[in-house]
């Protein structure tokens, strides 16, 4: 049985070869909150995030999503789970053989019986949410990094998920675009009341968007709390991370 969280990770362990990436991670994300997972490079943030929609399975431990254990599910059964939990990838992962409109329409084509007109409207609506009106016919190669991030976000939103997982949403962007993306994440969270989990090593972004912060170091959660608690934490590792950032 799970507790009260929308996403719950319990004692997660994961290794790749001899390298232990997650070493007993426990983390609960409440429904509707924005949880930011901070940590240095190679600390296991992305691997932890990918456990939350079953892209990666644990060696031991469990992941619960809305009370349902997903860590032992077959790929086919995970389809329904993944409609609820969308993900925005670090490199955007847009399908480069498709236009942005086709990218966004793809999950609707696959999972719904909506008419082409309704799908077109949903695509337009998703593009408007991220400020990319009129870009449906562009190919990913014709867009800037910031536009791609927003297009990837539009694709993630189009199935109206209950939770959004962001993997390094501001990496590689200039400060202005970083600010726009952070504001967009914040606005979407308020507007759509989705549960959000954001993995980043960017402290400034974390303080803008987080309701709560988790700090991951060497495959273990060292700290979970509000941004204020994080900033005033006496934990040596947290203190060091803040000082170095």
């Amino acid at each position: 049985m799970s507790g009260n969280g929308f996403i719950e990770c319990r004692n997660l362990r994961k290794s790749f070869g001899a390298k232990a990436v997650l070493q007993g991670v426990n983390l609960t994300v409440q429904r509707g909150e924005t949880m930011v997972i901070l940590g240095g490079s190679g600390s296991g943030k992305t691997v932890l995030l990918k456990h939350m929609n079953g892209l990666v399975g644990p060696e031991s431990g469990e992941v619960f999503l809305d009370g349902l254990e997903i860590s032992r599910m077959e790929e086919d059964a995970l389809t329904e789970v993944r409609k609820k939990v969308a993900m925005v990838f670090q490199g955007c992962a847009l399908f480069d053989s498709m236009t942005i409109g086709e990218n966004i329409a793809y999950p609707l084509d696959e999972h719904t019986l909506l008419s082409p007109e309704v799908i077109r409207d949903r695509v337009r609506e998703a593009l408007a949410l991220v400020g990319l009106e009129g870009c449906a016919d562009l190919y990913p190669a014709e867009m800037s990094g910031g536009m791609k991030k927003r297009a990837a976000l539009a694709r993630a939103l189009v199935l109206r998920p209950e939770a959004l997982l962001y993997d390094e949403p501001t990496t590689g962007l200039d400060p202005l675009m970083t600010h726009r993306i952070n504001r967009l994440i914040r606005d979407l969270q308020k507007k759509l009341t989705v549960t959000s989990v954001v993995v980043t090593h960017d402290l400034q972004s974390a303080f803008v968007i987080a309701d709560r912060v988790a700090f991951l170091q060497k495959g273990q959660i060292r700290f979970v709390g509000t941004r204020e608690e994080f900033q005033t934490s006496k934990d040596l590792a947290v203190h060091e991370f803040i000082s170095d950032a």
């Binding site: 892209l55 993944r82 992962a93 847009l94 399908f95 696959e110």
Partner: peptide, 14 residues
């Protein structure tokens, strides 16, 4: 390598 396979899976597409 551009995570498009993971993106497919994350969209519930096999």
């Amino acid at each position: 390598v551009t995570e498009q396979i993971d993106a497919m899976r994350s969209l519930g597409i096999n």
